[in-house]
Design a protein around this nucleic acid. Structure first.
Lengths: 217, 217
DNA sequence: CGTCAAATCACCATATATGAGTGATTTGCC
DNA sequence: GGCAAATCACTCATATATGGTGATTTGACG
């Protein structure tokens, strides 16, 4: 290890680990990276289990990983890898574009998410982007991610009611909300009553579930 | 309006509104779009107020907007525009890369976020990307957005405690959590006690604040 | 000028949730 | 054998949430 330079140093070799059970694909990825300078495949595995056995001595800078793998799934794999090497940058390459896969992978620690319709040029530029501090995503994924932030522009709630709901959603108590909005606890209660009426619920849990479902907060 | 074709039709002219108080920049953006086919500047404004007056008759497909503007700020502007025309796609172009600006703009309804160090090529390709269902972001912004999903891989909490905390964070009651995890309410309380000990807090609100701060959920 | 929605505050009553304390069993791992 | 994790039980006091009813002020809109 002493004669290996960290990828953070300028011009250093960037170490890449591949985790993909499809041999053809894995070989393709390896070829893309070998074809250009600056990258070295430090590990090639067909399962997370195999990768995890070696990852602490490989110490890759970046990991390209599929999500559907024999044995441990990719999401769990990402979590375990990040636990062992928090600084590693993990990019998902998968056919899956379902929200569960995408958001679970991101929460687990992925810094990029490419779908398998990506061209080799896109994959390569994604990897370069990661090293420049970016977070590459296929267009559809980026759109899903950004839209997950959007709040309903035509909420039935008033601005003040939304303020209150927002804090309820953060687990704040009536007292805390009253203080932070400079109103009395009774006023908070009135707003909450109106919120429940408008959302047609009769308790906090259901209100928050509905609020999340309808992107009201 | 009857002789105007919606941008959703193939080959139709794409209508763009610009909201930017810096005349030089605004003119540059206009020139970029005029220089290529398929785009038409339907509105050019130096404030949200001015844009909002005309937006319902302009009906742009896309809005390029700055965040720091005279009068109404860009975030409020985005919210109001989305309220009037929910289908419009709004792309922010600003110097600001602070989290408050970024996440507020995204929550308000922006589908893209470019910093002003973007090249004209990047701006143009971003606009095209929007029309292809994408969500263009500058590299640093994409990185901020994705990292906001990451959970701490070295949480002090056990898996089960994390399960409980996750549900607490969603506003669930002890009873609800007990049911959904198939354990007794007393066990839930025990887990919560342990969570409070580990996070060094003594109430739910503070636990959730700390959990969010440390990305534990 | 009248009406209405929104925001504000008050008081009463009850049920539930919460937190703190204490103790105990089982399981699996090193 | 020791330890951490997960499970469940019981008690007690207080905080919190919910429901009901009513009232005032403000600003917007026609």
């Amino acid at each position: 290890m002493k004669n290996r330079i960290s990828a953070k140093d300028d011009g250093a070799t960037r170490l890449v680990t591949l985790i993909e059970d499809n041999v053809e694909l894995r070989t393709s990825y390896a070829l893309i990276l070998k074809g250009i300078g600056g990258y070295q495949i430090i590990g090639e595995y067909d399962s997370c289990e195999a990768a995890l056995k070696n990852i602490e001595k490989d110490i890759p800078d970046i990991v390209l990983i599929d999500l559907t793998l024999p044995g441990m799934n990719g999401i769990s794999g990402i979590m375990r890898i990040k636990k062992l090497i928090p600084a590693v940058r993990i990019v998902v390459i998968t056919v899956h574009d379902e929200p569960e896969f995408v958001f679970n992978a991101l929460c687990a620690g992925a810094i990029g998410y490419l779908t398998k319709d990506s061209t080799y040029e896109q994959i390569l530029s994604a990897i370069n982007e990661v090293f420049e501090g970016g977070a590459p995503m296929s267009a559809k994924i980026a759109s899903m991610v950004i839209k997950s932030f959007h709040v309903n522009p035509r909420s039935p709630l008033t601005e003040r009611e939304t303020d209150v709901l927002k804090q309820l959603a953060q687990g704040k108590t009536y007292d805390y909300i009253a203080d932070s909005l400079f109103i009395s606890k009774d006023t908070v209660k009135t707003h909450i009553r109106h919120i429940y009426e408008k959302l047609q619920v009769d308790n906090k849990s259901d209100a928050l579930i509905k609020a999340r479902k309808d992107s009201l907060v």
